[in-house]
């Protein structure tokens, strides 16, 4: 099964192709503000590079975020409408899961971390691995990077686009010594495609129309309204 994977949660358009045995393409196109302008072209270029057209693709994987709100709104919309229009099955893959997959380690759990756009605020989750597949432990985290000190109790791998920077804060300011390996990685279209492949071959596809971005953070307006309405 040939699977196209896309992830636009960061400042790149990650587009990759996996056929169940090997990665046919794994591109990262810089896209700080022009994800919308580039994404379909980038998909086309990546498919052609793998000698494919969209009609040859048998399934899609879409990185849901968290990350750039604009990026994931565009990427998830493109993913779901491509799947709907081309009649292909699709699997929504949390970007943190895909980062953990790329950074997987035989003996250590992986903490995948993505910056939340505000200083020192991050999205994170902790994973162990079962048959090479990341299994998330507990809820997704959204908050100040320093709070992870309370959660990281044992030696771990810290993985993500700015893992080194976040490790610096954890180490210098919070005295955390448990990070054994730092893996600086950007989201990968191929990783999303690999995880989607695993889900799709198990028959676990998503209804394309139901796919929504994973923001992990309410919009500021909603936070204010809830605050004044006395809700958490």
């Amino acid at each position: 099964m040939i699977v196209l994977g896309i992830d636009t949660s960061g400042y790149i358009n990650a587009v990759g192709v996996y056929d169940g045995e090997s990665v046919l393409a794994d591109n990262r196109f810089p896209a700080r503000t022009d994800t919308l302008e580039q994404i379909v072209d980038n998909i086309d270029v990546t498919l052609k590079q793998a000698g494919l057209e969209l009609k040859d693709v048998e399934g899609l994987g879409v990185g849901l975020g968290p990350g750039s709100w604009t990026g994931i709104k565009v990427g998830v919309t493109v993913g779901k409408m491509l799947a709907f229009s081309a009649g292909k099955p699709v699997a929504g893959i949390p970007t943190l899961d895909a980062l953990a997959y790329t950074a997987q380690n035989e003996s250590l759990p992986v903490f995948a971390v993505i910056g939340a756009g505000v200083k020192d605020m991050v999205y994170a989750a902790r994973y162990h691995f079962k048959a090479n597949e990341p299994v998330r432990e507990g809820d997704y985290f959204a908050g100040d990077i320093r709070e992870l000190v309370k959660i990281i109790k044992e030696p771990v791998v810290l993985a993500g686009p700015n893992a080194g920077h976040y490790h610096g804060i954890l180490n210098r300011e919070a005295g955390l010594k448990n990070v054994m390996i730092i893996t600086e990685i950007e989201p990968s279209g191929a990783a999303v495609a690999c995880l989607a492949y695993l889900r799709l071959t198990r028959g676990q596809s998503d209804d394309p129309l139901s796919l929504v971005p994973m923001y992990l953070k309410e919009s500021t307006a909603k936070v204010f309204v809830n605050k004044y309405a006395g809700k958490p």
């Binding site: 919308l36 998909i43 086309d44 709104k73 565009v74 409408m81 491509l82 081309a86």
Partner: peptide
């Protein structure tokens, strides 16, 4: 801007796929 983007992302995906 964010609202327009969703419609355009959907439209260009349909256009490309079909």
């Amino acid at each position: 801007i964010g609202c327009l983007m969703v419609g355009v992302a959907a439209a260009k995906s349909i256009s490309y796929a079909r």
